[in-house]
Design a binder for these strands. Sequence first.
DNA 1: GGCAAATCGATGACGTGTCAACGAACCGCT
DNA 2: AGCGGTTCGTTGACACGTCATCGATTTGCC
Lengths: 162, 162
Amino acid sequence: MDATRWLDEREDRAWRGYRRMRRLLDLELARELTQDAGLSEADYDVLSDLSETPQGRLRLRELADRMLWSRSRLSHHLTRMQQRGLVTRTECADDARGSVVVLTPAGRQAIESAAPGHVAAVRRHLIDLLTPTEIDALGALTHRVVDQLGGRASHPRHDPEV
Amino acid sequence: MDATRWLDEREDRAWRGYRRMRRLLDLELARELTQDAGLSEADYDVLSDLSETPQGRLRLRELADRMLWSRSRLSHHLTRMQQRGLVTRTECADDARGSVVVLTPAGRQAIESAAPGHVAAVRRHLIDLLTPTEIDALGALTHRVVDQLGGRASHPRHDPEV
DNA sequence: GGCAAATCGATGACGTGTCAACGAACCGCT
DNA sequence: AGCGGTTCGTTGACACGTCATCGATTTGCC
């Protein structure tokens, strides 16, 4: 019994479009970002999240959760960013296991000078191409999907089982 | 003159939602795919594109272009898939430089048994969560963005300049 | 207090993607 | 036919992500 409900024409169009947009948008934004600011998207996201905190500092675990990254990935990536002088690691006061990621002046400088161009690129290639209605629809739809996928769970879920 | 037009609340909601959905949806679909079919998303896409051709064969260049992959990436990936017996390489009749990727019976078997589950997952986590209006909006919006980014161009664009 | 279980972050091995470079073949022009 | 420029696909080195594992600590429970 092949009861598979394949995608109809409209669904297929949406799905293929989504995947294609996903790929092209990523390539282009990454390209402009490295070219204009010497940062990867990963770098940008780390710096961005850090700069949104009052102190420019976050517990490693907290940062990983916000970004939906594994701690391992973040740890590796921070090692590289640290070598470039964008962030530093500090001991965590209230938990001797933990470490705190801190934005360096150079890091803050980097994100602040990269942000305007990046936002402009996001506008140029996505936001400004949509109608207000579409913006709202996209916001609604994506959040619904995220909620359904359990947006709060950290990423490397060891399957809490049932 | 900091004339940067930052994202307003709605735009920000759409942009963050998109990125979060992108990440979570990918993780979940990849997880189910490996678990249920022993395939990565990359494997699935390669097999899927191949199986959509009448002969189950495509010029390497052609496949790379369709997938928006670099030839290098595809070549590396095919080497691995070939070792697993999912595809083979054949010489190209009308161009001695080229090679043709061919779906093996095992490869066809793999995609055919993986497809129903994958489509079901796409429905469960995305398509079936959207209203018909949203489906159409998503289709329209993504295609517009893709067109604007020059959807036809192969990926490693050596900037045709101007 | 004391002990098992869980959490935190780092690390090494490995799979995968990117980039630059290459040889081979094709194309267009003379 | 010959020659330069281009395209095809492969390869090796390197950057990045994942997974399993580890030591150190914290937490929960008795």
